[in-house]
Design a protein around this nucleic acid. Structure first.
Lengths: 244, 244
DNA sequence: TATGTTATATTGTATATACCAATATTATAT
DNA sequence: ATATAATATTGGTATATACAATATAACATA
């Protein structure tokens, strides 16, 4: 097992957090299991109990464990973990992956072009160049959604079709460009498919669908994408979790 | 201003938290403003810096303030507060109220009846009696949505139409019955209105709408309501915030 | 004027310690 | 066998202290 190093530049509480996260991730600690007590962890790793508490409180805030005074600290059960994760911003591929579904993406269109006024507005940008990408999302060999994404050219000047074919957009942003995602505003509307769309999605014309519009912000405040996506409604039910 | 009492049964950090929350609520501390430094608060209230930190860290986790090492602690700006609040479970009236819109509710139907199998399933209950309520939601004098709610009779045996006419459902649950709401699962689908619905909503027949199905859970794990609601889509755009 | 340095203020991390509160367990009395 | 009391365990609150990391302002120097 990983151990805590006092020489590491990482804070001690953070190292402990990682250790516990790993154990939960790898099911060494299973949902419902108690984790070692504060005093045990403190002795085990030769760090103070207060430092242990800091690590555990972080995990509580992240929803991985919960505490009961007098009883102990326990790994959150999967049901509640799902509840926690469902209101998070995640890419299409990742969402489907977590449901155990196989996905495929066909890029229908990849173009560097002048931004229309509307798109510029959504992207809150000065310059005029945007990358426009149209993709067909396929789940378990069935066409599922049509996405059109606009990205400010100056934020990803060397983005290519090939890169997108081999990586998810969000992972590119994080790993290649070093951007930190913050949040997205999304609106949902009902929609009747036009001929082009129903054709691509292999449903009868004028079928019902959901239209999502999403504007995604980086930590630095800039808009990194504006996306319009139509999801066929016969195969897909949009689900959200609302916490009180 | 409120002061901290060492004799209070409430923890010191909690009292400080309330004081700061009040100051933010009443705009004594405005969005973007720095709050007093940890050492200042520590001296002002004669409590230790660590206790001050605990109070502030709670506020950070609740999204009311954010911290920058070396600079200070600042009141979250309204934009981010909105972002934080939008993924919360709230009643219809409260949501509209916060947007500054006037609402009205007409109860179309209030009945104690046998639950159908589907409803029983959604409510995860043993007994058969449910209260079925149908309401027309009106915003700024325009019909907006039609809601049908099913509530397990045993959880609210003395619920009456009159009570609902004078209070919001969620506030009744909290204040009259002492139930604690936990979270809700909600699905969203596109829908074409039938004659009855389009009539009530005063839109042309077969207009587009959004159908929400919501199952709400209490802290004790029981389902308190199953709701189906159709919202007209010409006046209403459903908006959600996704955090990364 | 520009640039690097120093001082200062702020939050962040970490320890040691003490006692409190809630719960679980064990021992005891009936 | 069952209730009650005592004890141990576990997380919760609170203090005092020291040093690290970061940001800003003041200052010195080329």
């Amino acid at each position: 097992m990983k151990r805590i190093s006092k020489d590491s530049p990482l804070p001690l509480y953070y190292q402990l957090k990682e250790i516990l996260e790993d154990m939960i991730e790898n099911n060494i600690l299973e949902p419902g299991d108690p984790i070692p007590t504060e005093r045990e962890l403190s002795e085990m790793h030769s760090i103070s109990r207060m430092t242990v508490r800091k690590a555990i409180m972080d995990l509580v805030n992240e929803g991985l464990v919960y505490r009961e005074q007098g009883r102990g600290t326990f790994v959150t059960d999967t049901e509640s973990k799902l509840k926690y994760q469902l209101s998070k911003l995640k890419g299409f591929t990742k969402v489907m992956e977590e449901k155990g579904l196989e996905t495929e993406t066909k890029i229908l269109h990849f173009e560097l072009k002048e931004a229309t006024k509307k798109v510029k507005n959504h992207l809150k940008m000065e310059k005029n160049q945007v990358i426009e990408i149209k993709r067909l999302r396929i789940v378990e060999d069935e066409p599922f959604a049509i996405e059109t994404v606009w990205i400010p050219y100056d934020l990803c000047p060397d983005m290519s079709q090939e890169m997108l074919e081999n990586n998810s957009f969000y992972s590119l942003l994080e790993n290649k460009y070093g951007y930190y995602l913050d949040y997205a505003k999304q609106t949902i509307e009902p929609r009747i498919l036009n001929e082009y769309e129903s054709d691509l999605l292999t449903v009868e014309e004028s079928a019902l669908a959901l239209l999502f519009r999403r504007t995604t912000y980086l930590k630095n405040g800039r808009v990194i994408e504006y996306t319009k996506a139509v999801y066929r409604s016969d195969k897909y039910k949009h689900e959200v979790i609302l916490n009180y």
